[in-house]
Design a binder for these strands. Sequence first.
DNA 1: AGTCCCTGATCAAACGATTGATCACGAGGA
DNA 2: TCCTCGTGATCAATCGTTTGATCAGGGACT
Lengths: 343, 343
Amino acid sequence: MTGMTSTGRADRTVTMREVAERAGVSVTTVSHVVNDKAGARIGAEARARVQQAVVDLGYRPNVLAKNLVQGTSAFIGLVADSIATTPFAGQIIRGAQEEAWRHGHVLLVANTEADEAAERDALAMMLEYKVRGILYSTWTHRATQLPPALAETDHVLVNCYAPGTATRAVVPDEVAGGRSATALLLAQGHRRIAFVNTTSPSPAREGRLQGYREAHAEAGVEVDEALVLDASPEQEGGYGAAERILALGATGVFCHNDRVAMGLYDALRERGLRVPRDMAVVGFDNQEVIAGHLRPPLSTVALPHYELGAAGVRVLLGEQRVEPGASLRVACPVIARDSISAR
Amino acid sequence: MTGMTSTGRADRTVTMREVAERAGVSVTTVSHVVNDKAGARIGAEARARVQQAVVDLGYRPNVLAKNLVQGTSAFIGLVADSIATTPFAGQIIRGAQEEAWRHGHVLLVANTEADEAAERDALAMMLEYKVRGILYSTWTHRATQLPPALAETDHVLVNCYAPGTATRAVVPDEVAGGRSATALLLAQGHRRIAFVNTTSPSPAREGRLQGYREAHAEAGVEVDEALVLDASPEQEGGYGAAERILALGATGVFCHNDRVAMGLYDALRERGLRVPRDMAVVGFDNQEVIAGHLRPPLSTVALPHYELGAAGVRVLLGEQRVEPGASLRVACPVIARDSISAR
DNA sequence: AGTCCCTGATCAAACGATTGATCACGAGGA
DNA sequence: TCCTCGTGATCAATCGTTTGATCAGGGACT
């Protein structure tokens, strides 16, 4: 426990008692000084001696001991079904971590890769660490079932929701996002706007479609249902949808996501068509690696992953109120680039 | 501390003493049963009573208390200069987290976004939690300076290194990676292979170039230095390099990364050229969103981010030995797709 | 001189576990 | 009958803090 490591560093851990001895005071006094305890009466001289001893010895308080006696921990658990299969899931973590940090809390992360046993273990571990609460998040926005252990502590759902329960959730506002994306094209004067939706049922599919319709309604433009297509939500889907889109006489396309848009770009280019002159394109997700660097850069709507994580923490800590069973909808910001009007 | 929350869940935390009382035994006995303590003599009957009490009460051991008395914590700190600016930094976290988990440890993550104050805070927090050690990681593979606080505990560098120190590091094997990428093209019979390197000095730049040379040497092919170009390491760089590459009469290109390759694809397509018929292309990074979904899918070399994180943990825990001051080089796997030979 | 009240600091009991030492007791051996 | 030994379980100290209660020693006031 004590001694030198292979790298020659002393790893003796300095305790409060040692500080007290060196400063010639009691541990109580040290505690008071270190924590700047309000209402504690410490003489200027003793205070100085303690502070000196702290730096001399390189004392670091032991948070675990502190937590133990205070009965509170500053841990927040984050369980994710997949940390990094997708680029932006990381942003949820980052948002949660930074927000937790701001409130003096520490994030305990576990990725379960949708493995039920791993999930059970992760939850058990978090409960053993007496977390203040748990954020349960999924990679895609979707409905989910809650593991029973979650009931043992406070919890908030992030990027998912549990229908029919009293659980609070934080999710992206798909409808408003779809509306924004469509409005972007409508504002450029487009009237025949194709929507390449995903084939898989999800809040994103339903929500963005509804947004597409609402935007048309707001602009007083009738929707031609034939313009709404389905395609697999990847480059291949967009590539394959090009033919149909062109046949429909659309002048603008709202793609379910940026990858679909990327595939569509390829297909258009192969036909000698230019974006946005021959076809205006809007994506969804703002997947940095893609959207910002296509030719021309893609207009899109961002999924607020960072904000989802951060808001989740705020809800958990009671900083932001959400009714039991309700979902907090986080706005999806519009990122306008050159794919809708040449500059 | 005790009571009902807004979600109607009891958050009373059950202690070992309560289990002991219900089972009619001492806490010592409970401890022995719960931990399956070898050498402890417990009668079958008492053991059963304890186990029953544990499930009845829903007891969860308090790890913090356990750590305190045992003087060890199961925490490993991971400080990253940027968790999610890049898609794959998340993989380092995932690798570290899962490997830590496998060894019964828990990861404490902090992202500092290259902010020195944040970094100091993060390190302080980790030291206060009495971490077993710290993984210090950077987003790009590069040399770095170590913050002083790192010396207070055991540590390993991940994806970076500190020249002139005794610190151990885990980094990708850039040279071997560059060699593999080039060999892929050489094996297809290409003899004039352009290399679009990055403009910014880095181990990646130097290493991959060296690998490019070594592969040629191994194949007995002379390198025409004119074939080695520099370009900004993004889509734009690849797009802009196309002209020069074509002028050089190259039949294959090794791009510094997948994004460069993506830009090059665009430029080639605009000229009516096909990959790989007219030009074979190899990337680097295996950035999933891009490489797997270009047309045709891009052959590339993967950066082993997951492995870097996992290996970092193993080195820290002494599972894998690395000499002080040395770097463990992790292989970069080749991902062969259709961009080098049509199928 | 006695009382009251600050001020500055210490005492000692927690917190929830682990663990070496100890104990009660009945069986087996001499 | 006495001693030893093995079994099953408990005692009590400990880990590094926090915190309400307590204390010593002066003034200031009556």
